[in-house]
């Protein structure tokens, strides 16, 4: 293995580490909430691939929990669209408050906008980025780490759901707890 570092790699490694440290508070929360989601989805009859697809394509925790009910109940596409609009309308305002900050994000911009969840917003809304690092790369990495945690949790929940030694009834309260904590914090 070639261990020699290119001049730019040192700075790159630094920004990866700093982004990871920034995202760390979200790690366990996303994994735990994701596991809860994976278990619920599995109990509703939708396994691993569904959990993977929803966490990769929707990437909105509360909407995915609500989406389990939509899938299980065979909701119409119209009611799914309206429900998604109502549950996720708050994202309009996260985006609004990030317009200035993401204006010059270039190639990172589409993913930064796609991945602007409640938690990622709460990490990045202070606008602080480490000295000497490309702020757009830094924000991209924080967003990407967050989605990796989320997808990992959702997949784990789907795989582990059947094997857990205790009943999982009540695990759905983790979503309520997330919102209560977030409301208390603001």
């Amino acid at each position: 293995m070639d261990t020699e570092k290119k001049p730019s790699l040192g700075a790159g490694g630094g920004v990866v580490k700093k982004a990871f440290i920034k995202s760390a508070p979200v790690l366990a929360g996303y994994v735990v909430l994701g596991i809860g989601f994976g278990i619920l989805l599995r109990d509703a009859g939708y396994g691993l691939l569904w959990s993977l697809a929803m966490s990769a394509l929707i990437f909105a925790g509360s909407m995915q929990y609500v989406g389990v009910g939509l899938l299980a109940g065979g909701a119409s596409l119209i009611s799914a669209a309206l429900t998604t609009f109502m549950v996720n309308a708050r994202h309009l305002f996260y985006s609004i408050s990030m317009i200035g900050r993401y204006r010059d994000a270039g190639k990172y911009k589409p993913y930064l906008i796609f991945a602007l969840t409640d938690e990622t917003y709460s990490l990045l809304c202070d606008g602080e980025t480490p000295d000497g690092a490309d702020p757009n790369l830094y924000r991209f990495l924080v967003s990407l780490f967050d989605q990796c945690y989320w997808v990992t949790g959702c997949v784990l929940g789907s795989v582990l759901g059947a094997a857990l030694p205790f009943g999982t009834e009540g695990i759905e309260f983790s979503m309520t707890a997330l919102f209560v904590a977030s409301f208390t914090e603001q």
């Binding site: 909407m63 995915q64 899938l71 909701a75 596409l77 799914a80 669209a81 998604t84 609009f85």
Partner: peptide, 8 residues
Amino acid sequence: LVAVMSAV
């Protein structure tokens, strides 16, 4: 349904 949730 997943596609609609994702798109919205």
